[in-house]
Design a protein around this nucleic acid. Structure first.
Lengths: 132, 132
DNA sequence: ATATGATGTTAGATTTTATAACACGAAAAA
DNA sequence: TTTTTCGTGTTATAAAATCTAACATCATAT
């Protein structure tokens, strides 16, 4: 219930996320540029990532490691395809470029990821103290 | 089991800890000076706090709010009194200064705190991915 | 009245992060 | 094959966050 709040709390600076995910700052910012994560910002404009953001980046990394490109990852991770305009175009193009086999593979990954990350419950007994 | 590892991972810069605990940087550093927390450091010497550190600071804050002073907090939170030399002296002095009533109060707080923070399990389904 | 304890504030140095631009190799397109 | 595009590395420059150390302050204890 409030687990969502907890998982969405902006907590980590990019340095921490780098070591947590073993992604470079460049990569993390690039994925953000493509709308795959939306870290909060401090007053001073520094990124602050939540547990959900980190999970997201770990998903992305898995997909990257499996050879999926940006377009594919967007297809998999961005739920509502009817909102952006630039992305929508790209996504359509991608769809045509993927074979049935590839699509099945992506779908499988998607389900695997969904399952994996829905289990991510982050029950931290005293996390309630983190909210005022 | 590896929950301990998870809870001890250096994750948070002092700014995050400030908003999480509502303590000032000055206070946090002061408590560290007194050995109440031992945050890790980055290569560049910036503090990185773990969940345990944050819990510790929240305990400290509770005690402060209850009117307990540094000496009392040390008494309560530092487990092994036979290790430091400077602290040991101070602690002995304090012991004499506390009335029976105060001692009971501190003991009660200690038990309350212990109970509260032993329940802090931090089971985060996918936290295992945070370790390499 | 003075000393101590806990915290605020300030100054100057260092680290971390930000954006933007350019480089580059691999893969895709022409 | 040549040319683009994609994903990432690298570099430069600026700004923010944090560090230590010193001094200020106010309440409490002596």
């Amino acid at each position: 219930m409030s687990d969502n709040i907890r998982r969405n709390m902006p907590l980590f600076p990019i340095g921490t996320v780098m070591s947590l995910t073993e992604l470079s700052a460049r990569q993390i910012r690039y994925y953000e540029e493509h709308g795959l994560v939306n870290p909060a910002r401090t007053e001073g404009n520094r990124r602050l990532f939540s547990f959900n953001d980190v999970s997201r980046l770990l998903e992305i990394k898995d997909l990257i490691d499996q050879g999926v490109n940006m377009a594919g990852i967007k297809k998999i991770l961005i739920p509502n395809p009817t909102e952006s305009d630039e992305e929508e175009k790209e996504e359509k193009v991608v769809k045509k470029e993927l074979s049935d086999n590839e699509l099945r593979k992506l779908l499988k990954d998607e389900l695997i990821q969904a399952g994996r990350f829905n289990r991510t419950s982050l029950r931290q007994g005293d996390m309630s103290r983190f909210f005022h």
